[in-house]
Amino acid sequence: SASLEDVKTAVLGLLVILQTKLYTLPASHATRVYEMLVSHIQLHYKHSYTLPIASSIRLQAFDFLLLLRADSLHRLGLPNKDGVVRFSPYCVCDYMEPERGSEKKTSGPLSPPTGPPGPAPAGPAVRLGSVPYSLLFRVLLQCLKQESDWKVLKLVLGRLPESLRYKVLIFTSPCSVDQLCSALCSMLSGPKTLERLRGAPEGF
């Protein structure tokens, strides 16, 4: 439990870093931090981490990651405290083949985003970082199938509809809506759902 406290501190630090690096160059920093966060949550489900502190780590990670939004130009952003989304000039939600690297070039400044813009690109060529939603999407499927803490599952179920409104997140990387529907149906009809959940409301 003591070591998990250190892990929790590290994860919180990564969330803060991602919130900053999403809007700064090099964009590969945001890509790497995002991948680290998603990989860490995957390990929770792989090794069945069920301690309360592990659940709190997942809760905080999902609470942040499910706020990711994308505009029509595929640029990622996060809402501010007033709910207004600021889109990044440097990070996009497109999935890119590994051989192309985590970044790609664009020939010049991008068109203005639909929300308040981030800082304008400084040079004639900007390297865009790929932060594909499919990585998070796979972890969300694991959550629906394996999550043991009701608070975490409730958060994910509550945030998913709003995330799905931003269709560009889903359609720019390999996210299977069929698998999502299947996971939701299995969660509702499967007898093991109630068996594994802690803290579920009576009558769920």
Score class of each variant (00 low, 15 high):
21 K>H: 07
47 H>N: 12
141 L>E: 05
74 H>V: 02
19 Q>P: 05
106 T>P: 15
117 P>V: 12
104 K>L: 12
88 S>D: 02
53 I>N: 02
191 P>M: 11
97 E>F: 10
187 M>C: 05
178 D>T: 09
14 L>Q: 02
45 Y>E: 01
170 I>V: 12
175 C>K: 05
76 L>P: 07
200 A>L: 14
94 D>V: 03
138 R>N: 12
72 S>C: 13
74 H>G: 09
167 K>M: 07
75 R>V: 02
50 T>A: 10
78 L>D: 03
89 P>D: 12
105 K>Q: 09
146 Q>M: 14
5 E>P: 02
171 F>L: 15
157 L>H: 00
36 M>I: 09
202 E>S: 12
150 W>T: 02
109 P>K: 14
42 Q>N: 14
112 P>G: 14
24 T>D: 08
7 V>G: 01
36 M>P: 00
43 L>R: 15
128 L>E: 10
12 L>D: 15
32 R>H: 05
14 L>Y: 01
37 L>G: 00
93 C>G: 03
195 E>W: 07
17 I>T: 06
3 S>Q: 13
174 P>F: 04
97 E>A: 09
95 Y>E: 12
176 S>F: 08
134 S>N: 10
86 R>F: 07
26 P>W: 02
29 H>Q: 09
96 M>N: 14
105 K>C: 14
129 G>I: 06
6 D>V: 03
89 P>R: 14
39 S>Y: 09
51 L>V: 06
139 V>S: 08
83 G>S: 07
84 V>S: 15
148 S>F: 09
155 L>M: 13
135 L>F: 11
5 E>V: 08
50 T>N: 13
182 S>I: 08
18 L>V: 03
74 H>K: 07
153 L>P: 00
176 S>H: 10
7 V>P: 01
174 P>G: 10
13 G>S: 03
152 V>W: 00
177 V>E: 01
50 T>H: 11
54 A>L: 04
147 E>F: 00
152 V>C: 05
188 L>V: 08
89 P>M: 06
73 L>G: 09
81 K>G: 15
194 L>C: 10
77 G>F: 04
76 L>M: 12
116 P>K: 14
23 Y>S: 04
50 T>P: 04
79 P>Q: 06
161 P>V: 13
192 K>P: 06
31 T>L: 10
67 L>N: 15
166 Y>M: 08
162 E>H: 11
155 L>D: 04
152 V>Q: 01
